[in-house]
Design a protein around this nucleic acid. Structure first.
Lengths: 113, 113
DNA sequence: ATACATAGTATCAAAAAGTATACTAATGGA
DNA sequence: TCCATTAGTATACTTTTTGATACTATGTAT
C-alpha cells in the first residue's frame, strides 16, 4: 500500500481512495477484472512483469478491502477465481476514467519524444 | 512515485495515470490546488503531517509532469506559488470522483466500526 | 516413472522510500 | 539587537517495500 493513514483534513478522501486502488498494479488488476472473472495464473500471464508474490499480495489487499472476490475450488490442481465484488464495481467509472486519461497521456508523451 | 515503468499491455494506461497522481499526498495536493493558488507554506499548514522534504518532492514531480505550475517571486523572504497547469486541470473530473468515492467510503468504514 | 500444472508460502537480501535534523539567505518587527 | 519568517537543500538514518529463490500438494499427461 502506498500509505494507510489519512490524518489530514480536507481532501483526504482523495487519499483514502488512492490508498485502495493506488497500490502497485492494483489499477491494472481491477481493470482486467472489470471485464472478466480471472484465475490466478491467467492474471499472471496478463501481467508477466508482476511477481507472483506481489500479485498475491495485491489481490489479498483488494479482497480485504472488499473490492474483489476470491473463490477457491477444492480441486487439484487448485483453482482460484478472482472477480469484482459489488463494492468494487462502484469504482468502475473511476477505473474507466483513469484508463481513458492514461491512454491520452501516453499518446501525448509519445508525441513529445 | 509509486512506480514509473509500464511494460504491461492492456490496462496499463490505468497505471500510467496512477503513476502521476498516486504518489504519496499528490491526491490531496491536487485537490487543494483545484480550488486555489497556494504558497508553499500554506500547503504545509493544510497538510501538517507531510514533511517539508516530502512536500517539496511531490510538488516537483507534479511540476515535472506538467500538472502544476511553480511561480517563484524574487523576494525576501521568498515567495513561491503553486497552481494547476492547464494539463492538470484535465484531471479535475478524476480528482473530484476520487474525492466523492472516498468520502462515501470513509463513511462506510466509519459505520462498520 | 517422470514431468508439468496450479496457487500459493517462506525466507533472505536488496533497493526504495520516508523521517529527522540541521543548515541557508535576507528582511521586517519587537 | 535578536528573533521569526520563507522556501527550500543536505546529510544520515530507519523503515518499508520489493525481488529472487526455493519449496509445498496432488492429479493428469507422457
Amino acid at each position: 500500500m502506498t500509505h494507510d493513514v489519512y490524518d489530514c483534513n480536507a481532501g483526504c478522501p482523495v487519499e483514502a481512495t488512492l490508498a485502495l486502488i493506488g497500490g502497485k498494479w492494483k489499477g491494472v488488476i481491477l481493470y482486467h477484472l472489470l471485464s472478466d472473472t480471472i484465475r490466478f495464473n491467467e492474471l499472471r500471464r496478463l501481467m508477466p512483469d508482476v511477481t507472483q508474490r506481489m500479485l498475491t499480495k495485491q489481490l489479498r489487499e483488494l479482497e480485504a478491502d472488499g473490492l474483489i472476490l476470491r473463490k477457491v475450488y477444492p480441486e487439484v490442481p487448485p483453482r482460484v477465481e478472482y472477480s469484482m465484488a459489488d463494492y468494487g464495481l462502484t469504482l468502475a467509472p473511476i477505473i474507466t476514467a483513469l484508463q481513458k486519461w492514461g491512454t491520452e497521456h501516453l499518446e501525448r508523451v509519445a508525441e513529445e519524444a
